[in-house]
Structure formats: C-alpha cells, structure tokens
C-alpha cells in the first residue's frame, strides 16, 4: 500500500495514477476485510475502486493525462507533512495496542451494541442496526451529503442540452457497442443480474454485509455500464434526468419522513419503536424504509453525477471534432 502511495507521488502520467488509485482502493478494501469490517470493505470496493476511479477517468479524458513537471520546491509541504506525521507518531505512543481487548473503545459504548442490539432491534448485522437505528441521524446526514454532492455536480456541470446535436452525439456513442460485439453480448447478459444483485444487497443488509448505500452504488454501476456501452443518450432515454432528480429527492424525503412519522406518533425523531405495535417490528419497518431511502438517493445521485460528467465529456469531444474539422 505504501508502495502504491509513493508511486502515486512519483507518477506523472495521470492515467497511471488513477489506475494505481484503483489498486489502492482494492488493497484497502482487502485490508478492511482482514480487519473484520466487511460492510466497509463492501462500500470501499464499490466506491474507492469503482465509482471514483470511473469519475477520474472521465475527467482525465477531458483534461488530458499528462502532468506538468513540478517546478516549485516542495520543502514547505514536506515540512507541514512531517509536522503532521510527527504529531501523529507522538499521539500513537500512548495508544492502546491494536486488537487489545481491554482498550477503552471496546469497553464503553460498543458492548451495548454487541450484546443488546439483537434484543432491541432484532437485526443480526450489528453494523446495520447501529447505522440505521442507534445512529440513524448520522446516516441521514450521510444521505444528505450525497444528495448535496449530486446537486452540486448538477449546478456545476449540467448543460442545457440542444436537441439537434443529440443525434450526432448518439451516433458516436453507439459506436462502442457496435464495434464491441463481445462486450455487448456479455453486458446484455450481465446487466439484469447486476440490477437484481443490487436489490438483493439492498434487502439483505440486515443479515449480511450490505444495505442501501452499497445497493445504490451497485445499481448505479449497472446503469453506468449500460450508459458506457450503449451511449449516453440511449441511457438518458431509459432513465430520464428529471425523473432521477425526483428520485434523489424522494429518497431523502422518505428517510426524513420516517423520522417525522415517528415524531408524530409520539416518539422522538427516528424512534422506530412507535411505528408498529411491537417495538421490534417497528424497528424492522423503520430500517427497511430508511434503507430504501438511502438506496434511492445514492443510486440516483451516482447516476446523476456520472451522467453529468459523461455529458460534459461528450460536449468536449464534439467541440474538439468541430475544431479538427475546421482546418481540414
């Protein structure tokens, strides 16, 4: 891992850097598995190695892959970094050892989650019960963060699309699946299963690793695959941009309204116990619903983000083609 990090520093070819970042994400995900954090590994794999790499690729396709030689002296940066590192090393000296059973973090708050969550919430995956019930509000915040990012990307990148150019764009796009016979067929086979797999992850977050967020990312990944192969305009015809914005908003609203309903029925915000007559059933219902909210928002925001990046990229491409045509 360290090797990869240093390689990233040294590399001038942005493309290689992004490739390495993908590897880096995969390594850290494996690391998470070793460290028992399966849910995190799930997410990191989908996000760190998948989505963020893709986004960077699209951007590099627009901006060019070569980095200029570094002209300024990095000594001050080195200094800051060393100070930070020194501080951290200083801090680690008094830390409990990794894996020590008697470390304070394993003694204070966590035991309740581990011992009582089954009785209180009834979901075997403790991460899910903490995420969706004990700290549901953090997760709500997380959903809002991703929603914010989606809106942010929309504001920055969305372009008013002109009708007449669409045909032209689609003609370039579609070339990908025309040329790549093999990919087309394989992808056609795979896509429905990826979708179903996403939904499976969505609904089985209670029992194993996974949940709304991971499901959303996988769902989005399938859509992205489709868009890459069959062209953005085709994908846009299937999944309407306004519609998807609506879904993103609905996801956040769904999540929030679960809280509001519990508030109306006499509990505190996100107190699922009051949602049904039996507290456990209430918890189940609440978690199910908010996971849906998370899934909707994440999937649609990821799709929005990708569509907008890719849309920009096509615009660039088109501009470039026009420029290339003019001199000839």
């Amino acid at each position: 891992m360290v090797i990869v990090a240093f390689a990233i520093i040294r590399m001038k070819d942005l493309f290689a850097v992004v490739m390495l970042l993908g590897i880096y994400g995969l390594i850290s995900a494996s690391f998470f598995i070793v460290m028992d954090a399966v849910d995190v590994a799930f997410t990191e794999a989908a996000v760190g190695a998948g989505i963020s790499t893709l986004l960077m690729l699209v951007v590099i396709a627009m901006t060019g892959r070569k980095e200029k030689a570094n002209r300024h002296k990095p000594f001050s940066a080195l200094f800051i970094v060393l100070v930070t590192g020194g501080l951290l090393i200083y801090g680690t000296l008094d830390m409990p050892h990794i894996g020590a059973v008697d470390a304070p973090i394993h003694k204070h708050v966590a035991p309740r989650y581990i011992n009582d969550s089954m009785a209180e919430i009834g979901v075997p995956n403790i991460v899910t019960s903490v995420l969706a019930s004990y700290r549901a509000f953090d997760t709500f915040g997380e959903v809002v963060v991703i929603f914010t990012a989606g809106i942010g990307v929309l504001t920055l990148l969305s372009v008013a699309r002109r009708k007449e150019s669409e045909e032209e764009i689609s003609s370039i796009n579609d070339s990908m699946h025309e040329q790549h016979l093999v990919i087309r067929i394989v992808a056609k086979m795979l896509i429905p299963f990826i979708f179903l797999f996403a939904l499976y992850v969505q609904f089985h977050g209670d029992f194993g690793p996974g949940g709304g967020f991971q499901a959303g990312v996988i769902f989005a990944a399938a859509t992205i695959l489709y868009a890459m192969l069959f062209g953005l305009s085709t994908a846009r015809k299937v999944i309407n941009q306004t519609f998807i914005q609506l879904i993103a908003a609905i996801g956040v609203l769904l999540y929030g309204s679960v809280g509001i309903v519990s508030l109306m029925s006499g509990g505190n915000f996100f107190d699922y116990n009051v949602l049904a007559s039996d507290p456990i059933a209430g918890q189940h219902l609440g978690i199910l619903l908010i996971e849906w909210g998370v899934g909707c928002t994440v999937a649609s925001v990821m799709i929005i983000i990708f569509f907008n990046f890719a849309g920009r990229q096509e615009l660039h491409q088109q501009k470039e083609r026009v420029q290339n045509q003019e001199p000839s």
Binding site: A29, F42, A45, A49, V58, I60, I194, F197, P209, I224
Partner: peptide, 21 residues
C-alpha cells in the same frame, strides 16, 4: 457477496477505462 461485487466492479472499471481511453 463482496467477492461478487468486486468481480462486477472490476469488469465495469475496465470497460470504463477503455471507454474513456
């Protein structure tokens, strides 16, 4: 499940790389 996701993501990434390179 995680392994499956990795396989899928891996595929998509490579396609993405090619698409945009």
């Amino acid at each position: 499940d995680i392994a499956i996701v990795y396989a899928l993501i891996n595929f998509i990434s490579v396609i993405g790389v090619l698409r945009y390179s």
